[in-house]
């Protein structure tokens, strides 16, 4: 086995003791970081060093570390989940950086996502959005006979593409307006495209959009930064579908 290439980095990390603390950037040196490491492993190394020095380690969210759970995520040099396209922060490798780089690490910033500690933000606003309508009420029961409910390949694919959303919040974080339209668009689309989701489609669109406004998310101005940053590359055509579903529900359905 060949020894991996290593790099030295300067980190400027947002440190904030709690939701009420003002918070500030602290500078740390990350020395001899193997380029094969993931970004989170690099933070682990820094945290071990901080612990040995008797300092408080940097708090950051993570769970699966393979890009499927949606827990990780910080803004790295101004980019949500870092500079790599279509990946979560846990999938970002240190080979993406060069020796001597300075890396600024900030939490997701949005009115609706309050900082809990350091890089950890409270994303329960997303849970509230799902509770507002991101479900199908009727118990689907056991598996149906194949072909008893014909669904075209095209619709199934589009629905699956929307369902790839892992609820990480990068869309909100990268949106210049801190809008949650890509997330809500993905959730509404995923259900609106399948027959099981249709009966409640109007109510869902109205409730989720009203909840989104109430939670303090911004207004979409079609900047497309969300689509460019989303680790699952969810398309803004889902936002257009949300707009359609909302328009239909608000003006042409009997649901109030």
């Amino acid at each position: 086995m060949t020894t991996a290439k290593t790099i030295n980095l300067t980190l400027k990390v947002w440190r904030q003791k709690g939701p009420k603390d003002k918070g500030k950037f602290e500078t740390y040196q990350a020395k001899a970081i193997p380029t094969d490491m993931s970004f989170l492993e690099m933070l682990d190394v820094v945290n071990e060093q901080l612990t040995l020095e008797g300092k408080e380690p940097i708090a950051f969210d993570h769970d699966c570390r393979e890009g499927i759970c949606g827990m990780c995520g910080t803004v790295v040099n101004g980019r949500a989940h870092g500079p790599e396209k279509g990946t979560t922060l846990c999938q970002l490798h240190m080979r993406r950086f060069s020796d001597g780089d300075t890396i600024a690490i900030e939490p997701w910033r949005a009115m609706a996502f309050k900082v809990v500690k350091d890089l950890v933000v409270d994303r329960s606003a997303f849970d509230k959005l799902i509770q507002a309508g991101g479900y199908v009420s009727v118990n689907a029961g056991g598996a149906q006979d194949a072909n008893s409910l014909p669904i075209s390949q095209e619709f199934a694919e589009k629905s699956m593409d929307a369902a790839a959303c892992i609820g990480c919040g990068a869309c909100v974080a990268s949106c210049p307006n801190a809008s949650a339209m890509l997330f809500v668009g993905a959730k509404v689309s995923q259900l609106a495209l399948l027959p099981q989701g249709r009966p409640e489609a109007a109510q869902r669109a109205l409730s989720m959009v009203r909840k989104m406004d109430e939670l303090g998310f911004g207004n979409c101005t079609n900047e497309r930064e969300c689509e460019a940053e989303c680790p699952k590359e969810i398309s803004i055509s889902n936002i257009a579908r949300l707009n359609r579903e909302f328009l239909k529900a608000g003006l042409f359905s009997s649901v109030k």
Partner: peptide, 20 residues
């Protein structure tokens, strides 16, 4: 103004991902 208040604390580093 709604969009300004949706992000009360701005980022120290801003970089476009190529959308805008």
């Amino acid at each position: 103004f709604g969009n300004l208040s949706a992000r009360p604390k701005r980022y120290a580093v801003n970089k476009s991902a190529g959308g805008r």
